[in-house]
Computed example of a mutant assay.
Amino acid sequence: MIQTENINSVMRALADPTRRAVFERIARSDEMTVVELTRGSGVTQGAISQHLKSLKQAGLVAERPEGRNVYYRAQPEGLEPLFDWMSYYSKFWNERFDNLRDLLKEIDP
């Protein structure tokens, strides 16, 4: 069964459009610093740091300090609760599609 706390954390983290955009930028690269994420985002460095904190708490990003910089990388396994939740409900849709297929066969044999 799905762990409610984990899925809530991931959904809450990805519900914010700016935070989702930050996560997507990190996911498309190997690693990024706060400075790189701030550049061209239209968001302050402080706001980016807060978004990263939320993403880290949700298990969606990890950090690696190196000297004065901290590098952030996506943690794909952090999306597992979301994938599990969607997979659980796929049973619902598969049954509905099967029913639709049967109905269409009845209508047009």
Rank of each mutant, 00 (worst) to 15 (best):
M11K: 13
E31L: 06
P76C: 04
N94D: 11
T38H: 11
L104H: 11
S90A: 15
F92H: 12
N8M: 12
K105Q: 14
K53Y: 08
L79N: 07
M1P: 13
Q45N: 09
G46K: 10
E63T: 08
Y71R: 03
A58L: 03
I2H: 07
E24H: 04
E24Y: 01
P17T: 08
Q3I: 13
D98H: 12
G46H: 08
L60V: 01
A13S: 06
L37R: 00
R39M: 03
V61A: 02
M86G: 07
R73N: 07
T18F: 12
E106C: 12
I48Q: 06
N94L: 15
S41A: 12
E106R: 13
R39E: 14
A27M: 09
E24P: 00
R39H: 05
M32E: 03
T44S: 08
S41P: 02
L82N: 09
V61I: 04
L103C: 12
S87G: 11
R28I: 11
A15R: 01
F83I: 05
E63K: 06
I107P: 05
L14I: 01
L103D: 14
Y71I: 01
W85I: 04
E80Y: 11
D84R: 11
V22F: 00
E77L: 10
Q3D: 15
N8Y: 06
R39D: 09
L104R: 14
N6F: 15
M1I: 15
E36I: 01
P109F: 15
R96M: 11
P17L: 05
V61C: 04
L52C: 06
R101F: 13
D16G: 04
G42D: 09
M86S: 13
